[in-house]
Amino acid sequence: MNSFTLFKHSLFQLTDLHQAKKMPFWKVILYVVFLSIILALPITKQIFSIMQDIKSDGQEIAAKLPDFNITDGKLKTASGAKGFIYQTNSIIFTFDPDGKRSLNDVTADSVGNAVGLGFLQDEFVVSLPNSSAADSLLGTNQFEVPYAKGTLDGLNSTDLKKALDEASVPFWIKLIVFVVTLYPTFINLVINLLMIAIGANLYSKIRLYKLRFLDCLKISTYCATFPVIVSSILHFINRSFDDSFLIVFVSLLIFFFATRTEERQNPPLA
């Protein structure tokens, strides 16, 4: 018996999943990683879609930019260029060469998950969506890059538009995003599997099956295959779908079917 055979049983022969109790524990761990990868796929796709949206929105905004350049710590624009505010699905952009707006104004414009960006008179500003995670990681959700520091000297509208047109996400960035997504998915799945195993072990005790907690955990892991696949599909359809209840509940039902032929202990004498 191997994990591939048990994978097929988890889809077509549920009553054979009780044989998972014979699997080496390290193979069960690898199978949990495999299930985590399945769950991480829709989340990773969503992140890539967001990154692509930001790129597309950036190109849309760049097309509306007037000619400008940053030289000697100052923002210089073409004669008659006027400021504007432009909103897309992912970005709220401010171009204000006249000094009418500030970082706080750009932050106040941000709604939902949109990122606030602005070329103001004296600085380039970034305002991230309000998030306790961002605050704890970065210390703030507002960033300022004064032109006077010279960091942006040489930047101009032509180069910016060209950079956005040619921008692409490198493979190693995609790999990092996937690994970062996989870690919390793995932890969450392990927690769900422990909950399933606790319920399965209690059921086994009531039914007087000769199953240890570790046996229940091994069987439960393979019982979770079908609900994990269904949850992943539903995540592609509905991003906000909460899969924990589905995985725990359906896995327990499958465990009940999978262990119907388990050998029972003799009931204790009264």
Rank of each mutant, 00 (worst) to 15 (best):
S56G: 05
L189Y: 04
N188S: 10
C216G: 11
L217I: 11
N188Q: 10
E144R: 14
L65C: 07
A40Y: 00
F213C: 02
F171R: 05
L128Q: 04
G118S: 10
T44S: 09
K210Q: 15
T225E: 12
L175G: 12
S36R: 02
P24G: 08
M195H: 07
L138A: 10
K205H: 11
P184S: 14
Y222P: 08
L246H: 02
G83T: 11
I92W: 03
F255G: 09
I38Y: 09
L17R: 02
L182M: 02
A40K: 01
A62K: 06
D72S: 13
A62W: 03
K162Y: 04
G118C: 10
E60I: 03
L269E: 04
D57Q: 11
F68Y: 11
A81Q: 03
V145M: 05
T151V: 10
F256L: 12
I233A: 15
F84V: 01
V169C: 03
L30G: 15
G118R: 00
L152H: 00
W172Q: 02
K76D: 10
Y86R: 06
S244C: 06
V126E: 07
V32E: 10
T225P: 12
E263L: 13
F256G: 07
Y203I: 01
V106Y: 15
I219G: 02
L128C: 07
F95V: 14
D96P: 07
